[in-house]
Write a protein that binds this DNA or RNA. Structure first.
Lengths: 331, 331
DNA sequence: TTGTAGGCGTTATCAT
DNA sequence: ATGATAACGCCTACAA
């Protein structure tokens, strides 16, 4: 039988209302009763029932974090950023992986909100359409989208175009002229912006853009990298470098396949990825890549959502963060 | 203003008790009122307030998942196993990363349980002592420990000794005789069992165990692998193979450092890891390793904990799962 | 088959 | 500074 406010009240000779005020550090309590109540609470090993509290305050104390796929190390890294903040002491994280679920992200969010399970939500690299995202603005609980810029919704994202420009300019600076670009058509990825960055760098240096140096993959796994390398190999021009906005895993797939064909990296083919996943540092040669500030995005998201929940922030905010170019061995 | 049972009741001309029974699919409701109530609920876009429901039923509908470190791909993979089951539809996952938190896993579990935030808990590769683990058995809500065998507590774990034996015997079968063993002294890892498996394999084949071929690392990162390789290199005997119970990341660190020194893998040094993390497949050469059935452990844990919560399972269970030896290129 | 009434443990609004 | 009392929204005997 768990200890309740009443139990404490009885022993202390006060009412549960008083005890509640003590527990919640409300003012206007005599030092005497405060001390007494606190001691009894401690002696009885009292823990407040969060559900009852939630019913009275209409807050759950939880923040929903909705991710498309836990297998993604990008997502996991953002998750780390979310929990690593020291602000989240009073909120717990309710995690949802929508992969393979029939409920859409928007439906899930709506349900969580209406069922009063969450006080706020963070959406990581959501794959839903802008139209569906509109739902999020309409709910009672605040939300923020990570790794994607979207109109009229709170979000935190990186400047993909600038990141891609950095990478491409680096390659150009190394003397490369035939630079392939490997993009994924997977939904939700800001591929358009990255290709724009690639083109901008070329334009700046007066290098003509060649459509036949842009390759598409349907997904972003190792195998996709291997197969795209085959296409590169049999394309009209053999590039001396390849920039892979599709992500580090695809880039690693390309490197593996290239080496299998006896092509030296970076001597014959320089490779630059996007994301900076943990494996980027482990592979041989280690992967030069465009780092996304994943921890920072998570940190910003959780802080922002808590500010919203607690009424410290109003309006909507869009936060852009810079990428960082990480030079390793592959380029 | 959210829709409540009362709102529906009013419109339907019944009481909220009746509506509640309909919503919860209780028997003894006339088809007519059931239909009517359901229709109104749908029209009004009703969602039950989970907090109020929780207060009445004293269930939160959440399962706590406590992990020591989200950065571990092992942990993340188990997490995937937990969510991938199709049984968890009615439970949400409350995630806690204890890294850097002042509250111990045991304290956290106790608090969550007493505050009635969770109906059950899953502990992944906990680093707490057996003594502390005793707390878990005493709480009202059921718990299960993943990736660790512990007395008198529900758990699911792998046969580490057999896995290590497989790996070592494989190396012996390839003709290796001087086989180093790299173990981590990090808490919580079942290193003792793995070393025992290594020794057993040696013993079976009549190869003398050499203490000076066993190397310890304090942690399990890439850098630890690099530094341990230096020690191997300067040790009394240069092994032709190394088995790394400390995990794949350390194994990869060793490979990187070895190649840097111009040592061919596997030609001059065969390397076998433990875990089978995603990067194992990406590195060059790809890593031969002992796979732990991470998804299966997660799946077993969630199913087991739900069975416990819903009273379908009693007593305590210890489930052992087999490892699988994965041959790739590094050995 | 449905209504009545009480309770789950807190918080919050009044009084006092 | 503290006590009464009424929510919060739902569930569940028990009564009708």
């Amino acid at each position: 039988m768990p200890v309740t406010l009443k139990d404490i009240a009885r022993r202390a000779g006060v009412t549960s209302a008083t005890v509640s005020m003590v527990i919640n550090n409300k003012p206007n309590i005599s030092e005497a009763t405060r001390k007494k109540v606190l001691k009894i609470a401690h002696d009885l090993n009292y823990y407040p029932n969060s559900i009852a509290r939630g019913l009275a305050t209409s807050r759950s104390g939880a923040i929903g974090v909705i991710v498309p796929n836990l297998a993604s190390s990008f997502v996991v890294r953002v998750l780390q950023g979310i929990k690593s903040t020291n602000r989240d002491l009073n909120y717990m994280m309710l995690l949802f992986d929508t992969l393979g679920k029939k409920e859409s992200e928007a439906q899930l969010f709506q349900r969580l909100s209406r069922e009063r399970r969450i006080d706020g939500a963070i959406l990581i690299s959501s794959t839903v359409t802008d139209a569906e995202l509109a739902v999020f603005g309409k709910e009672m609980v605040p939300s923020i989208v990570v790794a994607r810029k979207c109109p009229a919704l709170n979000c935190v994202y990186v400047n993909n175009e600038a990141g891609a420009t950095d990478a491409t300019e680096y390659l150009i600076g190394k003397g490369h002229r035939a630079i392939a670009c490997v993009a994924s058509v997977k939904r939700g990825l800001p591929i358009g912006e990255r290709i724009a960055g690639y083109r901008r760098a070329l334009a700046r240096k007066g290098i003509p853009f060649r459509e036949d140096l842009v390759f598409r993959t349907t997904d972003d796994g190792l195998a996709d990298g291997a197969s795209v390398f085959q296409r590169i190999l049999h394309g009209p021009v053999m590039p001396t470098a390849v920039f892979v906005p599709a992500g580090d895993i695809v880039a690693i797939g390309i490197m593996k396949e290239a080496r299998k064909k006896g092509i030296g990296i970076p001597s014959q083919l320089a490779v630059v990825g996007f994301d900076d996943i943990p494996a980027a540092e482990m592979v041989e040669p280690s992967l030069t890549t465009v780092r996304q500030p994943k921890l920072e995005m998570g940190d910003y998201a959780i802080n922002m959502i808590i500010d919203k929940i607690e009424g410290r922030a109003a309006g909507f905010r869009q936060q852009e963060l810079p990428t960082k170019f990480i030079v390793r061995e592959s380029a």
